[in-house]
């Protein structure tokens, strides 16, 4: 079981706001996080708002007023039932965090990395398969850059798995997802290609992300770019998948076989 002090920090009335992209497009991330929670002996409720967050990658840019008002209504609908809400998505985190100022007695809105870093000792004790053979490039995404402690937490959690974090020149460049909605070709060429080629140049085995939008574009974008001269592809993993692997779960258990870029070589290197 998790240490008492940590158990208090995730006291009752905490829930997970799953958003849309993860449950509807990337269930492997949901499965991985549920496995982590089980391993830690934690049980968090599912939070259902009135709508998805809604996606800041699109609505915050195209219609700020609507985005904020819907996020406010969403948080307002769940405020009385939860004291803390955990999100697995940079977008949900951004939307609900902005809405906090507009809601009376709002719950804490925690990014998945903020939540898990509070459980670092419990996680560390449960590491069964240290991933020391793995070299990973961490892509934090844009939203967490506003909070340096969150960026640190993402890196610390990655390091906690035993994986080696590589330095790469374009780490801070956006994945290109918001640009993709307006100019897909430009996003693929000036963001995805640039970043992936950089990752490959420094010899990373995988790109680790904390956002389903980053995941989607960095993974699917590579498949499109393969037809346009990209020499090789690099698997993309959610941070929770990496953690679940380190906690001893098998790729199939998490659903890694459902990735568009199968991380076969990566799983072999783990053994």
């Amino acid at each position: 079981m998790v240490e008492t002090r940590e158990r208090v920090s995730v006291a009752a009335k905490a829930g997970v706001f799953w958003g849309c992209y993860i449950p509807a497009l990337q269930p492997f991330a949901e499965a991985a996080f549920r496995l982590i929670l089980d391993d830690l002996g934690l049980s968090l409720s599912d939070v259902r708002g009135i709508a998805c967050c809604p996606s800041p990658f699109m609505f915050k840019i195209l219609d700020y007023e609507y985005w904020l008002e819907t996020a406010r209504a969403n948080l307002d609908a769940i405020a009385s039932d939860f004291r803390a809400i955990v999100t697995l998505c940079n977008g949900c985190w951004d939307s609900l965090l902005h809405a906090r100022d507009l809601v009376e007695n709002p719950p804490e809105v925690l990014h998945i990395a903020e939540f898990l870093i509070g459980l670092r000792n419990a996680l560390l004790k449960r590491i069964q398969t240290p991933l020391q053979n793995l070299r990973v490039a961490v892509h934090v995404g844009c939203k967490p850059r506003s909070k340096p402690s969150l960026v640190d937490a993402i890196h610390e959690l990655t390091a906690l798995t035993g994986a080696r974090i590589v330095n790469w020149r374009t780490a801070k460049i956006c994945c290109g997802y918001p640009l993709f909605l307006a100019k897909p070709d430009e996003a693929l060429e000036t963001r995805v290609r640039v970043k992936v080629e950089d990752v490959q140049q420094v010899g990373a085995d995988a790109i680790v992300v904390v956002c389903p939008a980053c995941f989607m574009l960095l993974e699917r974008g590579q498949l499109v770019l393969r037809r346009k001269g990209l020499r090789q592809t690099t698997p993309v993993l959610h941070l929770v998948e990496l953690l679940a692997l380190a906690l001893g779960h098998k790729g199939q258990e998490i659903g890694l076989d459902a990735h568009a870029i199968k991380p076969k070589a990566l799983l072999e290197s783990i053994g």
Binding site: Y21, P27, E30, R34, E253
Partner: peptide, 25 residues
């Protein structure tokens, strides 16, 4: 919700031991 759940994802969710319909709004 901004995206809908396809049948293929529903099957995959069940394979992973998750409910076919996800906890969405």
């Amino acid at each position: 919700c901004s995206v809908s759940v396809s049948r293929a994802v529903m099957r995959k969710r069940q394979d992973l031991g998750l409910p076919a319909m996800p906890p969405m709004a």
